[in-house]
């Protein structure tokens, strides 16, 4: 089956279940993964990347069993991800940052130029240390679409950017499925971004999947408002 299917995934940290028997399936387009802090969003990404080992469960990407593959080999199967704390390599040029991924996923070097053109990064010979935050975020997107990605995990890709910059990033993100044909999974706290980008969302709370469906319906549901948006309202009123 095409897309990403998680089946009964459980992750334990000590006595805490940061993911508790989570099953969900994403088919295509840009999908959102939302929930309050500690809900298990980044844990889900870490399980898929292989940084965290799931106690039980499986994850299939286009029919391949992802969790049995060594972390670094998953990139070759078409898995890409960005990080909350962007990980652009300071000592390498923007071009080499993207080229690195192409090299280690057996992709053609021509896709490097394409990826950089797509995000619109000029003067790619500049070192990572010389780039602005927006440019580093762009490099991360380029790293995610180089080669033949099947699944792109974006963890708060617009963190730290101003509204105009976020807008630009949003356009790039929503264009990824058409550009490279990959499924995009987006974690973000910015509800406007999620609403604008995602057709489908999954909501996690305390490691459990509490809602799944079209973005519009899910965000309107009372349970989600209580668990997630309610918390935000409280925070705002506390300020």
């Amino acid at each position: 089956m095409a897309g990403l299917t998680l089946s009964n995934v459980t992750v334990r940290y000590g006595g805490v279940r940061s993911l508790d028997d989570v099953s969900m399936a994403f088919e295509r387009g840009v999908c959102g993964l939302i929930g309050p802090n500690g809900a298990g969003k980044t844990t889900t990404f870490n399980v898929l990347s292989g940084f965290t080992v799931a106690a039980t469960g499986s994850a299939e990407l286009d029919g391949m069993d992802l969790l049995r593959v060594a972390p670094h080999r998953r990139a070759r199967l078409g898995l890409r991800r960005s990080f909350q704390q962007e990980q652009v390599i300071r000592a390498l040029s923007a071009y080499d940052n993207v080229r690195l991924v192409a090299e280690h996923t057996r992709s053609a070097l021509t896709s490097v130029g394409r990826a950089l053109d797509y995000v619109g990064l000029a003067r790619a010979e500049r070192l990572g240390s010389e780039l602005t935050l927006l440019e580093r975020r762009l490099v991360e997107i380029a790293r995610c679409i180089v080669g033949q990605p099947r699944l792109v995990l974006l963890d708060e890709p617009a963190a730290g950017l101003d509204p105009t910059e976020s807008e630009r990033l949003l356009k790039l993100i929503t264009g990824i499925p058409d550009e490279v044909g990959a499924l995009v999974l987006l974690v973000d706290h910015d509800m406007d971004l999620v609403r604008a980008a995602c057709g489908t969302v999954a909501v996690l709370d305390f490691g459990k999947l509490i809602a799944f469906g079209s973005t519009h319906e899910v965000l309107a549901s009372a349970q989600v408002r209580r668990a997630y948006l309610g918390v935000e309202d409280d925070e705002e009123s506390a300020c």
């Binding site: 990347s49 670094h72 070759r76 890409r80 990980q87 080499d96 690195l100 991924v101 996923t105």
Partner: peptide, 18 residues
């Protein structure tokens, strides 16, 4: 290039397929 990625951080390097 792979070494530079490793120096920057294991997570980023592994996610890049290294």
């Amino acid at each position: 290039r792979a070494w530079a990625a490793i120096r920057q951080g294991d997570a980023g390097a592994m996610a890049s397929g290294i």
